[in-house]
Design a protein around this nucleic acid. Structure first.
Lengths: 171, 171
DNA sequence: CTACCAGATGCAATAATATTTCATCTGGTA
DNA sequence: TACCAGATGAAATATTATTGCATCTGGTAG
């Protein structure tokens, strides 16, 4: 998609500016990890990102991917997604949006809904908590899982992507 | 708290009934794990639950705690909490409620808000997703972290509870 | 009360995910 | 081109989670 592409370019420039501000180098690895996360519309694990990135930067190490992801979160370029399951998940979409969470296969699907976006932030003064953003998690069962009531993990979606991957290659 | 106590008793009876329905035995381990999760008002990791449970059932294994937690989630007695960070978290509160998520220390605080509870479920017919429940995640910075801008992990709360524990004993 | 068995448990091994250490390399600059 | 702060890669280690199997237990029938 072209608007998607140009948005990624904009984000990259924003990232480079942030690095310059802090005197930190913009490396091939950092650029590639960021591009990769922004280029996905799901909520990949660190390992899924590694798989994508290693195809573009031969020899990049898993360690670096973990480190860069952590850095990008601190910079606010991406977020950690709240996700059932044990692995950390990342989300390149920092716009306000919401999540459909399948209780059967743990899949998380993005949802854009203006009414939810317009939600007024509740008053949490008594808890002394400063709210900056809000997302709604909608729990239920996705089409896949409803169709095959007997489905057990692991599950793949219609594109063949593994939704709850279990194995990875050697380090 | 007494109402809390009796609610836990009720949940235990509900669990026993579920087991009987399915011909599954109600073991000391299962009862204790369930009691322990229900008795907490935070979102413990499997290991935190293990620590609590082992004090009451000497010799219980970590493996069993993992297995029981998984079973309780399948039975709907507890839920997996969406939580930033790498470890699976559990939530004994199955009533509709919402979460304040601190972006600094990853702490998750429960929030009850009638206006949020009353949210109408959005129409997701076009996505073929069947919604059964909804929770709102409110992102921000908790009082602790706002007070000590220099705080770095690990962090403990005012009660001394470790919010992002790092170590555990031998297996 | 005892025997019985499906299923649960504990233990040890293993897998999967994540972090640390440190020698080496690179981006950015003079 | 040389320099250096900081990034990277590799290996070791730590942490979290699962699996296989021998043994034990809850629930029940006799």
């Amino acid at each position: 998609m072209n608007s998607q592409q140009s948005s990624i370019q904009g984000q990259l420039r924003r990232f480079e500016a942030l690095c310059r501000d802090q005197g930190l180098p913009v490396t091939v690895q950092r650029r590639t990890v960021l591009e990769t996360v922004l280029g996905r519309d799901d909520h990949p694990t660190a390992d899924q990102i590694y798989e994508d990135v290693v195809a573009r930067v031969a020899g990049i190490s898993r360690t670096t991917v973990y480190r860069v992801l952590d850095m990008l979160v601190r910079f606010g370029m991406i977020t950690k997604a709240c996700h059932p399951g044990a692995m950390a998940r990342f989300d390149g979409n920092t716009e306000r949006h919401h999540h459909l969470v399948c209780l059967r296969c743990d899949r998380v699907i993005d949802l854009v809904d203006e009414r939810l976006d317009a939600l007024e932030l509740p008053d949490t003064g008594h808890l002394d908590f400063e709210i900056t953003d809000l997302r709604v998690q909608l729990y239920g069962v996705c089409a896949n899982c409803r169709n095959e009531a007997t489905a057990s993990k692991p599950v793949t979606d219609e594109t063949g992507a593994v939704l709850n991957p279990k194995k990875r290659e050697k380090n």
